[in-house]
Amino acid sequence: MKLGRNQATAAFILVAPFVIAYLVLFIYPTYKMVQLSFTDAPLIGEGNWIGWANYIKLASDKQFFAAALHTGYFVLLTVIPTTLLGLVIALMVTRLKGWLQSLVLAAFFLPYILPVTVVFLIWQWMLDLQFGIAQYAIELFNGSRVAVFRDKYWAMPSVAFITIWWTNGFNVLLFIAGLRNISQDLYDAASLDNASSWQQFRHLTWPLIWPVTALVLTIQLILQLKIFDQIYLFTQGGPFNSTYVMVQYIYKFAFQLNRGGYAAAVAVILFLVIVVVSVLQYQVLRVRGARS
C-alpha cells in the first residue's frame, strides 16, 4: 500500500506541471473567450451581458460568411496538395543515399525554419512586377506579367503556393520517419514475388504510411483553418476582400474596431469548426486506413 501511494505521488508530481500549464494557458483562456462572446465588451475591459446577440448577428453577417468561404478555399488549395507533395518528395528523398540525401532533405526543410517576415520579403522580391525573377515564369504561361497580390484571381492561389513552399519541409520529415519504419524485408519479399514498383507502393507503402498521412492531413487542416500571417503580410485581405479570412475578421473586430465580445464570438465559432472538422477528418481517415 505504501509503495502504491509513493507511485501515485510521483505520478502526480510528474504530471502536475503539464496539467497546471494546460489549465492556465488553454482551459482558462478558452472559458474567458466563451464568456466574453456573450457580452458587448471592448477588447480590454468589462462589458454588459447580451446573451446570444453576437451569434445572432453573425448569422446575418455577409462578411463573416465571405471570410469563412475564403478560408475554405485556402484549405482546398493547400491541405491535400501539400500532403501529396510531401509524400512524393519523401519517396524521392528515401531513394537517395549518403550526403546527397542529407543535402536534398536540407534544401526542402530550410524554408520551414524561416520566419514569416523573411518569407514575405523573399517572395515580395521574387514576384515584384518589374524586377521579380518569378515574373518570367508567369509571363511565359500567362502572356504578360501579373501583380499577383493585387489581382483577385491570382492572390489566394499565390499565397497558397508560398505557404506550401514554406511549410512542406515538416510534412516531408514526418513522411520520411514513417517510411523508415517500414521494414525492408517486406519490399524484398514483394520483389521476390515480382511485384512492380507501383504494386509495392499501392499494396505495401500506401497502407503502411496511411497513419502518417492521416496525421499530416489533420495537422495541415488545423493550421490552414487558422491562416493569418501570410494573408496579412501579402494581401491585407485584398484585393476587393478576395483573400479576407476568418482570423483576419477576428483581428479586425478585436484590434481595429475594439469590439472584443463580437470578435470572441467569431473565435468561438472558428474554434468549434476546427475541433469538429479535425476530429471528424481524423476519425474518417483512421477508419479508412483500418479497412485498407
Rank of each mutant, 00 (worst) to 15 (best):
T235C: 07
Y282W: 12
A264W: 08
F253V: 01
K152C: 10
G98P: 05
V159Y: 10
Q256M: 14
G169Q: 03
F255D: 14
I50R: 03
V79K: 01
I164K: 01
L204H: 03
L87W: 02
V247A: 11
P111V: 08
Y262C: 07
S197D: 11
Q283Y: 13
A41Q: 03
I20K: 02
G237E: 06
S144I: 15
A53W: 12
T82A: 11
N181K: 14
G72S: 13
T117N: 03
L285H: 09
Q124N: 08
V277C: 06
K32H: 11
N142D: 15
D40P: 04
M126V: 08
Q220E: 08
L76Y: 15
Q124L: 09
A134M: 12
Q283K: 13
S196L: 13
L23T: 06
Y28N: 13
F240A: 11
G47P: 05
T235F: 06
N194V: 15
V19I: 08
Q101F: 14
K226R: 11
K57Y: 14
F175I: 11
G289P: 04
F271Q: 01
D128L: 06
V266K: 02
Q256E: 14
S60I: 05
T167W: 05
L96A: 06
F240I: 11
L179C: 09
T235Q: 05
S102E: 13
Y251P: 07
L186I: 10
V275A: 00
S242K: 03
I113A: 07
L91A: 05
T167F: 07
A137Q: 13
L114I: 07
V172F: 06
A53H: 12
A195V: 13
V268F: 04
V93M: 00
L25R: 04
Y232T: 02
S37T: 03
L192R: 15
H70L: 06
V15H: 03
K252L: 12
W123P: 04
L285E: 12
Y249W: 09
Y232D: 02
L103Y: 06
A189I: 14
A90G: 09
V15G: 01
R286S: 08
L91T: 07
L225E: 02
L76R: 14
K57Q: 15
V93I: 03
V19E: 04
R5Y: 00
V148G: 02
Y249V: 01
W125S: 09
A195C: 14
V118T: 05
L285K: 10
A155C: 08
F161C: 12
I274L: 01
A134G: 12
W49N: 04
L91F: 05
F26Q: 10
L270T: 01
F255N: 14
T39Y: 05
A160K: 03
A267S: 06
S183F: 06
R180C: 09
K2I: 10
L14D: 00
H70V: 04
T213C: 03
A90I: 07
F170W: 06
F38P: 00
P207T: 02
D193V: 14
K57I: 13
S183H: 09
V266D: 02
V247L: 11
D229G: 05
I182W: 07
N6S: 08
A107S: 06
G45W: 14
R145L: 15
V216S: 01
Q135G: 03
Y136N: 04
S183K: 08
K32L: 14
E46H: 10
D185H: 15
I209Q: 00
V277M: 07
R150K: 10
